[in-house]
Design a protein around this nucleic acid. Structure first.
Lengths: 339, 339
DNA sequence: GATTGCATTTATCAGACATAAAATGCAATT
DNA sequence: AATTGCATTTTATGTCTGATAAATGCAATC
């Protein structure tokens, strides 16, 4: 989401290894590695600062910082007045990528979400309370709160304070999100502006095929969720209509918070990956109507399964008592506050 | 740009008439009048502070301020230790409501939007530039920028600065928003959780009937747009699925910025109001499938008309040259920036 | 001639304080 | 008993300053 695209890890910029990396440096370091991996850059490839800066839409300063960080990790080497050059093979790249990736970017955000789901936070609160509790700055907290409000599970009160909405905790809401997807995703395929994105299709196919071929067992449920979302979002983007894509992104941002604790079993997941491949086949064969119908069915099945899992999960878990407001009404559209 | 605009940063809350009303007071004053009008409260009706505060989800302080403001305008009178009582008939209420309503709440936001549409703002800018140019505080500006980012027509750059996306200025984007509505609105009617909201229906019917009966000539295009949006949003809310409602709200927030400069002629608008009434008839008769089909047709016609108007309008107007990026690609879903 | 390395400028962020406004408690009144 | 009116407390915003990071210009180098 655009709002917090720049995360600053201002929590002590100095790390254990002494390399002080802050601001954009780390994210850009990750991007450089990603670039090197995706384009299969050979060892010794030149990495011109200026072009990297251009590619990432930033100035050369953070790029330099990122390269210094990567040099400290042995991924690149600097040759005086000649620039930086790649110095790691793909194995090493993967290792470093993993190490860098571990620093969760929006860690406090996820912590709040988790605490909310676990019922550890009160229904209503003020900014100061959370600020103190999570030890983040006002600006950071404000960003997170705004983000949650935009995602639809937190609402600003007209005066002081915020309050949570029951969206996240309700199994019904989850089912409703699937109903919504059943409406927009097949429709996206049928849009007159729909065009297959060859590259995206190829990448998605490779990814799903890898799952079917066993990689599914190596991945965490969060990663599996991410792959699944990306797949559907790629298809929606092919609609050529950003409204469909954007709507799906929004739903998925919300789903991410609850669903990874309700992942089905591996067998089911394998079946989903196979269905994803089948969907790609249908689309590439130009059978848009059949693809749309197939996708609708696919979503309906997933909805039913997930719904069951979540519901039983909800029974097991103790629900925060403040939630029981008597109705299952989900006041999501609360973003249009009146002042 | 920023050269000619060294305006006062001090925002004086005091008004010409001397009544210093700030913060929530004004919005709440409006709400009180709205309440009195909607419930047809008689002159002399008691207005208990505590209950008003409860109804509006605020404390008694801003309610008191609002009542004092209303007393200054003769809408209510205070009787010592007995409280405030209504002292205006519906004619006077309407007049005062209009007077209060004139103070646009998000005036700078709309000004920025208008300037952007008129091509008066550069493609890229920094917060400081806009702050100086519009004379708003950083917090206010930040709120507006975040809002625009969420609405999908502004994007934060990874480092410093923001940049506009081409969404708003393109007639294509507008057409695509209607395609999206054609997908979700009929589907909303067909949701299994769809339930008619009797009160909402009655209010909508009265409003649309008033339009047909001639009120259409008294209203500004912005007001007409607002009524139209409300109608469709009310229907979507009946779906019982907040995702549909929320998605429509988002689309409409975006449409609002462009569409009121492309309102069709009165005759067309009258026709739309009649079709809205017909839709209510169908729904109340329980004919959901026919209603959905009818709504879809309704949207298709409106889309075609508006599209024509906008396109010719675009030809007349001089488009800012920075826009011509060669493609009509609408980078709305840009919210998924990668770091 | 492109690119680097460094220095300078500019923008944003964090912390602190003062201020405005909302929330809240309680005695007084009907 | 409910509600008001006032006083007090709490909360958030505006503004300032210093710190830090990003953007940018330019000489030096390959």
């Amino acid at each position: 989401m655009a709002a917090n695209s720049r995360m600053k890890n201002t929590h002590r910029p100095s790390r254990a290894d002494g390399s002080r990396t802050s601001g954009l440096a780390l994210p850009i370091a990750r991007k450089i590695i990603e670039l090197a991996r995706r384009d299969h850059l050979p060892i010794g490839a030149h990495l011109p600062k200026h072009q990297l800066a251009l590619a990432f839409h930033v100035s050369r300063s953070p790029v330099r910082a990122a390269l210094e960080c990567l040099e400290a990790r042995g991924v690149v080497i600097q040759r005086r007045h000649r620039g930086y050059f790649l110095a790691a093979d793909s194995r090493k790249l993967e290792r470093v990528a993993a190490a860098l990736g571990r620093h969760a970017e929006d860690e406090p955000y996820l912590r709040i979400a988790a605490d909310r789901l676990a019922g550890k936070l009160p229904e209503q609160f003020t900014e100061l309370e959370l600020m103190r509790h999570y030890g983040v700055s006002r600006a950071q907290l404000h960003m997170m709160l705004t983000r949650m409000a935009q995602e639809g599970w937190l609402q600003r009160k007209p005066g002081y304070g915020w309050k949570f909405l029951p969206v996240l905790t309700s199994a019904e809401a989850h089912g409703l999100s699937y109903r919504f997807r059943m409406a927009i995703e097949p429709a996206a395929i049928l849009e007159p502006t729909f065009r297959i994105d060859a590259k995206g299709f190829a990448r998605a196919r490779a990814e799903q095929q890898a799952l079917v071929d066993g990689r599914i067992r190596e991945l965490s449920s969060a990663e599996l969720f991410s792959i699944g979302s990306r797949f559907h979002e790629m298809i929606a983007r092919c609609s050529g209509n950003p409204f469909f894509h954007e709507a799906l992104l929004r739903v998925n941002r919300l789903r991410r918070l609850i669903e990874y604790r309700a992942m089905g079993d591996t067998e089911r997941f394998l079946q989903q990956a196979r269905e994803h491949l089948r969907l790609l086949d249908l689309l590439e064969a130009g059978e848009r109507e059949r693809a749309a119908a197939f996708l609708r069915g696919h979503l309906e099945v997933v909805r039913a399964v997930k719904s069951t899992v979540l519901r039983s999960g909800a029974r097991r878990r103790t629900r925060p008592k403040a939630e029981q407001t008597g109705s299952t009404a989900i006041a999501m559209g609360a973003s249009h506050v009146h002042f």
